[in-house]
Design a binder for these strands. Sequence first.
DNA 1: TTGTAAGCGTTATCAG
DNA 2: CTGATAACGCTTACAA
Lengths: 339, 339
Amino acid sequence: MSKLRSAPTLDDVAKRAGVSTATVSRCLNDPQRVIAATRERVMSAVDALGYTPNFAARVMAAKRSFTIGAIIPTMENAIFARGLQAFQEEIHLRGYTLLVSSSAYKPEVEEEQIRTLVARGADGLLLIGHDRDDRIYDYLDRQKVPAMVAWSFIPEKRMPSIGFDNRQAMKALAEEVIGLGHKRLATISGITQGNDRARLRIEGIRDAMRSNGLSPDTLMTIETPYEIENGAEAFRQLMASDHPPSAVLCGNDVLAVGAVRQAELMGLRVPGDVSITGFDDIELARIVHPALTTLHVPHREMGRKAAAGLIEMIESNASGQSIQLETSIVTRTSLAAPG
Amino acid sequence: MSKLRSAPTLDDVAKRAGVSTATVSRCLNDPQRVIAATRERVMSAVDALGYTPNFAARVMAAKRSFTIGAIIPTMENAIFARGLQAFQEEIHLRGYTLLVSSSAYKPEVEEEQIRTLVARGADGLLLIGHDRDDRIYDYLDRQKVPAMVAWSFIPEKRMPSIGFDNRQAMKALAEEVIGLGHKRLATISGITQGNDRARLRIEGIRDAMRSNGLSPDTLMTIETPYEIENGAEAFRQLMASDHPPSAVLCGNDVLAVGAVRQAELMGLRVPGDVSITGFDDIELARIVHPALTTLHVPHREMGRKAAAGLIEMIESNASGQSIQLETSIVTRTSLAAPG
DNA sequence: TTGTAAGCGTTATCAG
DNA sequence: CTGATAACGCTTACAA
C-alpha cells in the first residue's frame, strides 16, 4: 500500500512525469540543463501534486541552505527592528531566508543560539557588536560559517563589521554638549559587560571631556539594562546626588526617554533645568516631550549593506570587508545651554 | 585519508567512544536508556570533539524539528514584539526554537512564508488573525502541520485561536466615548483587506453607535497602513472636513500617536478640541503627549498561552482549543467629554 | 543495554 | 540531455 497522503516527494513527481529524480531535481535547480519538453512535463507534475521540496533533505545533500541567521540582543525595543527589517528585505531579494533569534543580552544564550543556527545549516550569520568569547569565533572558523558584525565598526577586529564608530559618534555629541557650556556631565549607559557599543560610547564622552579641559573622572555613570523604567530610575538617582549634572547623555534613546519622563515627574524642566540626549534616533525620540536631541544612525542602510556584504562572503568565499557608516547629530529640543 | 577538518559527526563520536552510532544518538536524545558508564564515555567524546548534531539530518530522520514558525505582519512596530517575545520564551522553555518571519501585511508574502516554514520542517505555526485563503488551511491540513491563530478570538473559525474579541473590545471603548457625549465620531483604521482585526474594530464602533441611537453611517472612516505618518495625515484630512469629528477612535496606538502629533501641529488641543483613542496599549501610548486612552491587550499572556496551546497540539496531536482573553480600557488623558 | 542496518528526500558524480 | 546510484548524518525498529 502506498504512503498515506503524506507530502509528495521528488520521487512522486518523477514517477508522474515519467523521468528520474535527477531530472526533476535539475528542473528545479537549474532548469536550463533540461530540454523544454521534459521540463514542462515535470513542472506540471510538480504543481499537480503540490510538491514542495523538503528543506532538510536539500540542505543535507547540497550542504547549502540559503538561510542566514541573525542574533539580536532583543526584539522588544525598536533599536534593532528597523535595521533587521532592511537586512531581511535585502537577503530575501537575493533568495535567502532569515532566521532571527534574540539573546536577551545574555552571552551564554547568544552562544547557544549561534550553535543552534549553525547546526541548522545557516550559510552565514549576522551578529551585533564585536564583544564575545574567542571560542565562538574559533567555532565559526572551524565550521566555516562566515559572520558579519553590525552596529559597530572596528576594522581591526577579527570579524568584518559594518556600522559606525560608536566612540567617535558619542564624542561628537558630547563636544556639542560641552560646547554649550555644560560642565557637570552624567551618563546613563546600557550594561557594558559584553557590549562594546555601550562601552565605547562612554569612552567617547570621556574623550570629549579630556580634549575640552574637563576631567573624565567627574563623569557620573550609571549602567542599567535598556528599559524605559531603568532610565527613569537612573535619572532619579543622578538628580538626587549632591551636585546633580546639568546634562545627562544617555547610551540610547530608550534610556533617554525614561530620563525625560522622570524629569517631568520630578518637576524638572528639560532642557531648562537639565539637558538630556539620546542615541539611535528611533521613533520614540521624536515622540517624547520634549523631543530628543540624539544621534542618528542609518539603520536601514546598515541592514542593507550588512546583507550585501555577508552574501558576498558566502558566495565568493571572501573574507569580508568592513564598512564605516556616518552618523549625524539630530538637534531637537532636549538639549540647550545650561540655565 | 580522513575528512579534512570538517564538522564532527555522530560517527566520529561513536568511534572515539568505542560504541555504535545508535548509542551515541540515545545518549543525546534519551540518556536514561544508556548505562551511566558508557554515557560518560560518550559525553566526554562529544565535547572533546566539540560535536554539534546536524540539524537537517536529525529532522530528516526523526520527522520532528522542535521548531515552531511564526509569521507576523511586521517587525517594525512594537505591536507584535512583546507578545512574540513571550511566545518565544515559553517555547524555548519547552525545548523548541522559534523561526520568525514578517509578511509586511502582504497575503502573498505570508503564503510563501508559510510554505517555506513548513518545508523547513516546522512542527507548528503561529499565525496572526484568521483572514486568509482557504487554500492555505487546506495545505496545512494536508501537511499535518498544526497552526494557532493569535491576536483574534473567533471560536467558530477553522483554526483554534487565542486572543480577544476585537469587535466587543472596540465596542466597549466606543461606548465609553459616546457616554461622554460625543456624537460626531471618526475612525482611523488599518487596512481592513485581509485583516479581520481591523475590520472587526470598525464594526465594534458601529455596534456602539447603533445601540446608542447614533447612525453608524455617520462614522467617518479612513483606512491607512500602520505608520505614525499615516495616522497624522488621516487626522489632518478628518479635521479638514466640513463637520470635523469631536472624537477620533484609532485602530491602533501607532495611528493614534500620529493623530495626536498632528493635532499639536495644527494647534488643536487634545482632548480639549478633539478626543483621540488608541488600541493595544504599547509603550508609545504612555509616552506621547497627551498620553493615550487606549485598550489594553494582555500581549505577554497571549504569547505564553499561544505557545502552550500550540505545543499541546503538536505533542498530543490534539485539534486545539480557543481561548478568550480579556481586554480593559486604560484611561489616560487623550479622551474627555466634548468641549 | 547495545549493535546492526534500513530508511529519511535531496543533490551530485558518472556513465550512457 | 538523462538516468543510476552513492553520499549526506541521523533516528529507530529489530536483533542480539
